[in-house]
Design a protein around this nucleic acid. Sequence first.
RNA 1: GCGGGUAUAGCUCAGGGGUUAGAGCGCCUGACUGUGGCUCAGGAGGCCGUGGGUUCAAUUCCCAUUACCCGCCCCA
Length: 418
Amino acid sequence: MRYQAPRGTEDVLPTDSYKWLKLEAAFRDLTARYGYQELRTPTFEDTDVFLRTAGETSDVVSKEMYTFMDKGGRSITLKPEGTAPAMRALVEHNLCPPGTVTRMSYIIPIFRYDRPQKGRLREAHQFGLELVGSPSPAADAEIIELTVRFYEAIGIKDAVAKLNTLGKDECRAKFREAILTHAAGFLATQPTEYQEKVQKNPLRLLDSKDPEAQQAIREIPPITNYLEDESRSRFDKIQELLTDAGVQFELAPDIVRGLDYYTDTVFEVQSTKLGAQSSLCGGGRYDNLIKDLGGSATPSVGVGMGIERAIIVLDESDGWTGGTRPHAFVVQATESAFKSCQAVVRELRSAGLTALLDIDGKSMKSQMRQADKSGAAVALILGDDEIRRNTVQIKRLGSSEQVEIPIANVLDKVLELQ
RNA sequence: GCGGGUAUAGCUCAGGGGUUAGAGCGCCUGACUGUGGCUCAGGAGGCCGUGGGUUCAAUUCCCAUUACCCGCCCCA
């Protein structure tokens, strides 16, 4: 126990990896049905990709990035989020020419140097979706619907989308001013550090958990008072589409997101099972990001869903339905039966079944215990007597039914008793 | 980055300045011939997180460090 995994990282153990496989399969299956194709990007990017997009004042960029110089003197950053790298690839390979729409998905590790907590790791993983090229509110609604459907598909109950809009540049500027004006009294009582932070990004005030801040926030007129017509009608239309789709959502003015590239729509799905980290995923519209990366202006929407967080929620709600069980465990009743047992195992495996056997020459009692613990549906028992008779004993574990059958019928019988 | 808590067996946790540090679960072996689960008996497994200090004596007290947990910040 000398070494341990680096702080904020974790090993997924063989006994737990089925959870990952299950979520990944659900994600790939569901998104494929909506026409999303998987994009795979490098684990690291030029640091500029993130500096240009996430916003230099955002916490992610200002204090959480894993950035280093490589031996060629390049500034490299392990990706702290998925959207900017995906859009870097999209621009580089011209994946979304003007006038077209592109749907992409990805499964990636993300790295953020922050203090670890429940549901917050330095290396985490996320499922991502990007719907690129469509200015339509139907695009926003599709991403939100797909996200909620994913949580339903993996068994997370009560997945409710929290929806908000941040408007566009001009209206947001007016709204920021309004925040500063209305919260001036409260801010004056705060440490200068916090004042500066809010000065730089007044929206930050809105998701504060401080009760006094909450009080101050109540004085601020809602952003909807400042929205331009286009933003307002988008917001309304999205809600209409989600309602039509039967997707549960709530309006949540406190959702502002930590990355600066969002425009108009922002949303999260939250859970109370995540401790201080309430959000299971976060996403929104980013109409300026692609242009910032040197592409042509392309309206887009996307989402990033935390895999570890989904697993926590499912763990705490007993959301896992049985792992995989072997079909058969082959028991050698006599030492000399080993080769025959291996032949049986080989036959079952080549027919696509999971078949196990002991390779340490343990006692039959021990083998039976192993068979039981493995969760196998049946034990196949083979010794000298059976070999002489060309038979095998087949025992259904969980009951004590046992019959002797011709060895030629093993496969059929094993399948029958599953 | 800031504040607080915890660290003892594979897991969940007791304990205590002084011979061989415990429990439950798990694991291994056995209970007449080649049969699991239940029961019973036996057994393996711990530098008591790491480094330093106080002390005749530290796993126990103190300090530091590392990791995890909780809250803040923030977020997946």
